[in-house]
């Protein structure tokens, strides 16, 4: 048996099992990250309400879901809940587990991004008669979003990798698909190389999208490299 067989590599690269697994990994990542952003934002907004109860809830929520491993959460959802009469399908358990485990990280990013917008922005908005919801939506959120995007990009990459854990509850995503394939021909090296390549590719595409977004915002944001010096030249009038 050769150490490396290109024909197996290329065969795996376009193998329907792998491609289906890749697709599952991608939609699972995007869907659960989206849900985690929604949930995390709601949790962060609750945490901003100035009361003992809401702050306690926020801290408890973040502490709990951040302190328990994703693997334990997934197995709990899939295997322990049935004992309490709650039966989740593999896909349901995977989606809920990935969403819950990611949400405290998003909540922390949202919370810190919101508080990074200077209070002077709130004051200037109030001074022209804006109400809190208007200020949040049109003044504070757009500015916080710009601050939140780089760390949220990290979370995409983390979430992409985390999806491999749902293989443990038998969901066939990229990693499990790869593993299935090796059961047939025992060529683990080529199969895992293909999986690695796809993980890298997905991350690279995401990075390009994120850079495009950041560049677009650098029109108004002060400390983002190249654009800054260009603009300074045109300003000094």
């Amino acid at each position: 048996m050769n150490v490396w067989d290109w024909s197996v590599f290329f065969h795996n690269l376009v193998h329907p099992t792998i491609l289906t697994g890749l697709w599952t990994t991608i939609w699972l990542t995007l869907l659960t990250l989206f849900l985690a952003i929604v949930l995390g934002t709601v949790v962060a907004l609750i945490g901003r309400i100035d009361s003992f109860l809401t702050r306690g809830f926020y801290q408890g929520y973040v502490a709990f879901f951040r302190a328990t491993p994703l693997l334990v959460q997934l197995v709990f959802l899939y295997s322990a809940l049935p004992q309490m009469g709650i039966r989740l399908s593999v896909v349901e358990a995977a989606i809920i587990g990935l969403m819950l485990s990611e949400s405290p990280y998003v909540a922390e990013i949202v919370r810190s991004s919101l508080s990074a917008v200077p209070t002077a922005q709130w004051e200037a908005s109030r001074a022209i008669g804006m109400r809190p919801l208007t200020i949040m939506r049109f003044i504070v959120f757009p500015q916080a979003l710009r601050i939140a995007v780089p760390p949220l990009g990290n979370e995409f990459v983390r979430q992409l990798k985390n999806t491999s854990l749902v293989s443990v509850i038998s969901m066939t995503e990229l990693f499990r698909a790869t593993d299935n394939l090796t059961q047939a021909n025992f060529r683990v090296l080529e199969a895992l190389s293909v999986a690695t390549l796809y993980y890298l590719g997905a991350t690279a595409i995401w990075t390009l999208l994120q850079n495009a977004f950041e560049k677009r915002n650098s029109r108004w944001f002060a400390d983002t490299g190249v654009q800054k010096t260009e603009n300074l030249k045109t300003t000094a009038v």
Binding site: E123, A124, S125, Q143
Partner: peptide, 13 residues
């Protein structure tokens, strides 16, 4: 009641 601040406080975006 219009207010103008020392540090302008324009909306940067």
């Amino acid at each position: 009641i219009g207010m103008v601040f020392q540090s302008f406080n324009l909306f940067p975006h």
